[in-house]
Design a protein around this nucleic acid. Structure first.
Lengths: 150, 150
DNA sequence: TATTGTTATACTCTATAACTATA
DNA sequence: TATAGTTATAGAGTATAACAATA
């Protein structure tokens, strides 16, 4: 029943395994509230960068544009976001969060906070900060959209 | 084009993102050599714990038994593993790596080693060790099969 | 009847390709 | 002609269910 040492000795393997585990937990938790991972990240994005166009949102979150359509549909149906046709280019839709959407975001945020607390529970506060710093260093190096600069 | 700070500030999010990225790279690299992630982990497992039954292998690697059948079929077709019917219980098949399988494992190992070097390149040697220790601490706490003990 | 390995089927997620309306 | 958003379709990957051999 024990995993090969060869795998456990790899940071890459542990990263994948812990990441998949956390993702699965988050998915399950969000699904109970009838949301997906994307609902959360779209709301979080629009909360910080309002009035993005659909193409911008999709590119930022590495989503397919056709995938985003369905996500936005379901958020719009619940009154959490609103689409606005751009007056300067009528092909474009800009998207914004509604007040209800912001309230929902707070709830989802709390759900994920709890999950993350569970995940990091084995570490001391100092170790949590060290881990985040190391992960951020890797993410910024490999993935510019995680970076502090634009 | 920048990801929400709310997400980047989360170790859980970074873990998922880095994990998915590394997994995708490993999949692409292995696919070029006509292997999958599972081929590698099955070979690695059998190299350390030979003569496991199919059920044991599937449970250890969290694979569906029916999924494992196809993986073993393709490894057997290439002469990298061999199935043996268990004499004490003729329902069971034990599985072992062949010499060719061991040679192939070395090659796959080198491929993943390189990928991992790329992943961890931004960190110093000391930071790499710190990161692995932190990840291992989390993995062992949440996932006994990663642990040192059985 | 229960279990091992196997085969066949269904489902979910994502990726690709067409379609419309605007530019 | 090219682009933004939308719709429809196809594919990979996985999960579920049924099946044959053996216990």
């Amino acid at each position: 029943m024990r995993l090969p040492r060869e795998l456990v000795a790899r940071s890459g393997f542990l990263l994948v395994r812990l990441g998949l585990r956390f993702k699965a937990q988050a998915l399950a938790e969000l699904a109970q509230a009838d949301f997906s991972q994307y609902h959360y990240s779209v709301l979080a994005l629009l909360d910080e960068q309002p009035q993005e166009t659909q193409a911008q949102i999709a590119d930022t979150l590495c989503l397919d544009r056709s995938q985003l359509v369905r996500i936005l549909d379901s958020l719009e149906d619940r009154g959490l976001i609103a689409r606005h046709r751009d007056r300067t280019d009528r092909r474009r839709h800009t998207v914004s969060v509604t007040a209800a959407g912001r309230r929902q975001l707070h709830q989802l945020r709390r759900m994920i906070d709890e999950l993350e607390d569970d995940l990091l529970a084995p570490l001391t506060g100092a170790d949590r900060r060290r881990l985040h710093a190391l992960l951020l260093q890797l993410a910024e190096a490999h993935d510019p959209s995680c970076g502090a600069s634009d």
